[in-house]
């Protein structure tokens, strides 16, 4: 079995606000092997992006890692100096973002922005670096790369810009690529192209990918294993097949039921999870999902469930009290059939 090269352990991230410190990500733990893809899924505001930004240590002035460690190739990223971190950013870990329209600096050319990165981490002459940048642009399927390299970002469409971002992110052959909602802002046909591209590049380079999305379809397409996050915590973790076949957590089930299906009866109302993600300032006691959960019991209101492996599959972890009871009685959950 291959060794994990990224191990995030009990990560807790907090932000300073006017109303005091708020914990935005709590007890997040996951591991990643070389070439593996992990998907992080959840509603807006559940801490997906914060988790990924803390791996890059790009939490801004108000954010900080309070507890936990991030082991990356034998180094604890939470303990590195800013200068050491800069060596890693863009080089060993790189990132692409949700908004291709605003992720590139409008006043510098594509080439300028790519060369900046290449010069920072790779020892290349000016002309070599330029040729390499053009090669990278071609690799991500950008037509007329020789001309486009001298264009400004506003001349490119959203899909093209995301390709540029990917080319840039992969320039230094990172061992980890973090993709924060890489296709959310793109229209569907472009989404598919970008996902195809990422899959192809993953095969070629054996880069591990951390893909963040609220779109289960994207996750199903890309990920080997999945973290489902809710209100800053991991509520379920499993490999992608297990998760889609046998989701255990009521939240995961709810997410899957709220995917519209073409074959569904058009008269049937699409399921949605009632309520919204709780405010970070007023996190509910007990299970954070209890006020939206149809199965909530007394215990759920008062005690927080731990993230535990289920008996027959130790790689499948769920944060739910129901599982305790299900082990005693036969599952009476009719919903899982709807999804399957």
């Amino acid at each position: 079995m291959e060794k994990n090269f990224l191990e995030v352990d009990k990560l807790q991230v907090a932000f300073r606000t006017d109303k005091g410190e708020v914990v935005s990500v709590d007890e997040v733990t996951f591991q990643l092997k070389q070439g593996e893809t992990i998907g992080i899924v959840g509603e807006s505001g559940c801490g997906k992006s914060v988790t990924s930004l803390s791996v890059m240590r790009l939490l801004g002035r108000t954010g900080m890692i309070k507890k936990g460690s991030i082991q990356f190739n034998g180094k604890d990223l939470t303990k590195l100096s800013e200068a050491q971190m800069r060596e890693i950013r863009g080089n060993e870990i790189s990132m692409i973002f949700q908004e291709p329209m605003t992720s590139l600096n409008p006043v510098f050319t594509i080439g300028n922005q790519m060369l900046e990165l290449i010069h920072l981490h790779m020892n290349m002459s000016k002309s070599e670096a330029r040729a390499y940048a053009i090669e990278m642009l071609k690799k991500v399927g950008i037509p007329r790369a020789e001309q486009l390299i001298d264009e400004y970002p506003h001349k490119l469409s959203g899909g093209m810009r995301q390709r540029v971002m990917i080319a840039m992110a992969l320039s230094c052959k990172p061992s980890l690529l973090i993709a924060d909602e890489p296709t959310t802002a793109l229209d569907v046909t472009i989404q598919a192209q970008i996902l195809e591209l990422m899959k192809r590049l993953r095969q070629e380079s054996n880069t591990a990918i951390m893909i963040i999305s609220h779109d289960l379809g994207v996750i199903a397409e890309m990920a080997d294993k999945v973290l489902v996050m809710y209100a800053g915590q991991v509520v379920e973790e499993a490999d992608v097949f297990t998760l889609f076949d046998e989701p255990k957590h009521p939240y995961t089930k709810g997410l899957m039921e709220s995917i519209p299906h073409l074959e569904h009866d058009s008269q049937k109302k699409l399921f949605s999870i009632p309520g919204t993600v709780p405010n970070l300032h007023m996190m509910p006691k007990g299970c954070r999902f209890h006020d939206r959960c149809p199965y909530a019991t007394e215990k759920c209101v008062t005690e927080q469930p731990p993230l535990l492996s289920i008996p027959d599959n130790h790689n499948h972890r769920v944060r739910c009290w129901l599982l305790d009871e299900q082990q005693q009685q036969t599952p009476t959950d009719s919903r899982s059939e709807v999804i399957a």
Binding site: M56, L58, R86, I88, S94, T102, N105, L120, M168
Partner: peptide, 14 residues
């Protein structure tokens, strides 16, 4: 607060 500054930082720029 612009996104492209986050991109610049994510490249490892000082």
């Amino acid at each position: 607060g612009q996104d492209y500054l986050r991109t610049a930082r994510s490249k490892g720029l000082r």
